Simulated assay, not measured.
Amino acid sequence: MSQNKFKLVECPRDAMQGLHDFVPTKLKSEYLNLLLQVGFDTLDFGSFVSPKAIPQMADTAEVLANLDLSNTSTKLLAIVANLRGVEEAIKHAQISYLGFPFSISETFQQRNTNSSINQSLTTVEEMLSLCDKSNKKAVIYLSMGFGNPYGDEWNYEIVEKWADVLVGKGVEIISLADTVGISTPEKIKAILPKLISKFSNTEIGIHLHSTPTERFEKIEAAYDCGVKRIDSALKGFGGCPMAADDLTGNIATEEVISFLNSKGEGLNLNMDKWNEAMILSSKIF
């Protein structure tokens, strides 16, 4: 079994960003340093967005300076919401990936990034150019990829159309994002195989939100579709503060690990460090 068959993306940034009480920089850094030793492919560790929008992430640059990358193969991903964020993120050599939430819901794109879908497409184009020049790679999240609560039109064809546009612009990694927890195994199985088949040279991943009772069946559906890039967060913490107040949380990483282990997939994770992170998480959440 290849060590790199699955790209597990741990998302502490997504888990922490909506917390009301500010998590001290030192505690954030301690938590992230533990997660860096577990062996995930990627750590979604912070974001370069307006502190007014996401106060919890105001110290991302300071946290980054406190991370020990000397003994880890895990790559860092930072979220950006506009060109200013891109320009800030690319200054940091330690960051490998820049993630941008590209919503196929016009309402949510305005709500999340204060820009239209078309304006965001221009941002993506400029982001790709800047990433290329700074030896970084863009990860584009197709947010509201399974529908939206705003009444904006949604269907499988719209999802595929925007994936087609993004791939045409040069995007090499797309993560289909649920955002509000309305994905179902049926929707996952209807969308993902088509995307994976049509865009065979593009890395297609999944970023799901879910209630605890539905997590397992969603993980299983994604696995059955052949997805190799899976976003999750320890204990299923988190959600998107720009979407709604009553959001379901992320897919729980421990359930992803348990499921993949049950399928005999070799993950090569340091479970001692993972358990340390689980214990420390109680100080944060």
Rank of each mutant, 00 (worst) to 15 (best):
G205P: 05
N201T: 15
E62K: 13
D21W: 05
E125Q: 13
P241Q: 02
E217S: 07
M144Y: 12
Q119M: 02
G18N: 07
F237V: 12
E106D: 15
L128R: 06
N261Y: 08
G249I: 00
G239P: 15
V23K: 05
L130E: 09
D132V: 06
K218V: 10
W274R: 01
Q109K: 11
S232N: 10
T253Q: 00
K228V: 10
T113Q: 04
P12M: 09
G266P: 10
A65N: 14
S262T: 12
E10L: 12
S258Y: 11
F108P: 00
S210Y: 01
S200E: 15
P55N: 02
S2L: 02
G266Y: 12
N135A: 15
Q119W: 04
I95E: 09
T253P: 00
N261G: 03
F216S: 14
K7D: 07
Q109G: 09
T179R: 02
Q3Y: 12
E265T: 15
S115I: 00
N118Y: 07
G239V: 12
V167Q: 05
K28T: 13
M1T: 12
L19W: 09
Q94W: 03
L77D: 08
K75Q: 13
L34G: 06
F48I: 10
G147R: 00
C240K: 07
G249K: 02
E62D: 15
G18T: 01
F45T: 02
F40M: 07
P12L: 03
D224A: 14
I206N: 01
P212E: 12
S175F: 00
S281T: 01
E214P: 01
I279R: 10
L43Q: 06
E220S: 15
G170P: 09
K218G: 02
M1A: 12
K283V: 12
V159K: 02
L19E: 11
D246K: 11
L176S: 02
Q94I: 10
F199P: 11
Y97E: 08
E220M: 06
K194S: 10
L142Q: 02
V124F: 09
L19I: 15
D14F: 12
I158K: 10
G226P: 04
N268L: 11
E214S: 14
D41V: 04
G147F: 03
L34R: 11
T107Y: 08
F237C: 09
N114K: 09
V167L: 07
K161V: 04
L64W: 08
G238V: 06
S116H: 05
V227K: 04
S105T: 08
P193W: 04
G39M: 07
E265F: 02
F6T: 07
T122M: 10
S105K: 09
E126I: 01
K26R: 10
F199K: 10
D14M: 04
V227C: 06
A93Y: 08
G181K: 11
S96L: 09
S281F: 09
S105Q: 03
M1L: 13
N148G: 06
V49W: 02
A65H: 14
C131W: 04
G170H: 02
S143T: 15
V124Y: 03
E172L: 07
T184M: 08
T107H: 10
L130K: 14
G181R: 08
E88I: 05
K5E: 14
A58R: 00
L32G: 00
S120R: 00
V171H: 07
G147Y: 01
L142D: 04
G266S: 11
E88W: 08
T113F: 01
T184P: 03
L64A: 11
E217R: 13
T74R: 03
Q56M: 11
L67R: 13
L192C: 06
W162N: 15
